[in-house]
């Protein structure tokens, strides 16, 4: 029923209750084998001693976490000093992911709103257009972005040809390049949930607000935004979380100076610098941060939960 007259409660009847309890078995199995078990392995590894050139020694220690936060001098026997190398990588990651989220929101929200207010016959086409980039692998998209942005690339070529600049802009290997990569990779994840929320929005509510002397801006702020907030929060989570752990964009576009957590962790598990317990510890710290952020956002979402 329209007009918010939905009374909530269970939608399904009892007829299929017995069958229903088996529906989640496949996903529990998948989650158990491919998510829960690896996370357990990582938790355990993060408390073990490192074996040079990869692997672990079954000797429990807090060394990996200690290494993350403290500097104990060259021989590991000095007084512990807080060390900023890894913390600042984390901080940069959060900052970059946060910025990517805000940019995606600023561009994604109007886009989603525009699509959701098209005639329903053309909406499918718009959504289809939004998803087209996803037909191409992320690696390839990121590499082509690198090609576009490099000093001799088409972007600089164009800008120099029209005379806007004389020397090429050094975009590659900067935070800006990483930001562009992240933002570009995850923008659709912002657009789609917001689109779904705006599409469900009852526009009579906006009419009612206008009828009650609210300006367009006030209507957006007081009526539309609260109504589509769950979609906005979902979009922010979907952009922020993968941006935080991304390693392709920082790796390919950022270079060594613009390391993010994802690359840091990746590096611990491959090549000669490998330090599995440290990589596991960094993963655990990342995981805890994401969990905290999700908890905060989901409590927000519960507050925004409109009907109950």
């Amino acid at each position: 029923m329209a007009g918010g007259a939905v009374s909530g409660g269970s939608a399904a009847s009892d007829t299929y209750a017995e069958a229903r309890q088996w529906l989640l078995v496949p996903s529990w199995l998948v989650l158990g084998i491919f998510v829960l078990a690896p996370v357990c392995v990582m938790v355990i590894y993060s408390f073990l001693t490192k074996e040079f050139r990869g692997g672990v020694i079954w000797d429990p220690t807090l060394a990996a976490y200690d290494q993350f936060f403290f500097d104990r001098g060259l021989f590991g026997d000095g007084d512990p000093k807080l060390q900023w190398t890894y913390i600042s990588i984390f901080w940069r990651s959060i900052w970059q992911a946060g910025l990517a989220t805000i940019l995606s929101l600023l561009i994604g929200f109007p886009t989603a709103y525009y699509i959701a207010t098209r005639p329903s016959s053309t909406r499918t086409l718009w959504v289809f257009l939004i998803t087209i980039p996803y037909w191409v692998n992320l690696l390839i998209r990121t590499v082509s972005m690198k090609f576009l942005l490099r000093d001799e690339g088409p972007l600089n070529g164009f800008l120099m040809n029209v005379g806007l600049i004389n020397d090429p802009l050094h975009i590659i290997n900067t935070n800006l390049a990483v930001q562009l990569g992240l933002f570009y990779s995850y923008l659709p994840f912002m657009v789609l949930p917001i689109y779904a929320a705006v599409e469900r929005y009852n526009f009579t509510l906006s009419e009612a607000a206008a009828d009650l002397y609210a300006t367009k801006w006030t209507t957006l702020r007081r009526i539309l935004l609260p109504a589509v907030k769950p979609g906005v929060i979902a979009g922010c989570i979907l952009v922020f979380v993968p941006s935080l752990g991304a390693f392709l964009a920082p790796d390919l576009l950022g270079g060594a100076k613009n390391f993010m957590i994802g690359s840091l962790i990746e590096e611990q598990f491959k090549g000669n610098a490998g330090n599995w317990p440290f990589g596991a510890a960094a993963s655990m710290i990342l995981l805890s941060m994401v969990m905290i952020i999700l908890l905060i956002l989901s409590s927000q979402r519960r507050r925004a939960g409109v009907d109950q």
Binding site: G4, A208, D211, Y213, I223, P226, A304, D307
Partner: peptide, 20 residues
């Protein structure tokens, strides 16, 4: 005049109450 500048108010068919 846009709706928000007209001194008339409407009772909508499906009420359009603000759910939040």
């Amino acid at each position: 005049l846009p709706p928000h500048k007209r001194p008339v108010n409407t009772v909508f068919q499906n009420y359009a109450l603000f759910p939040h």
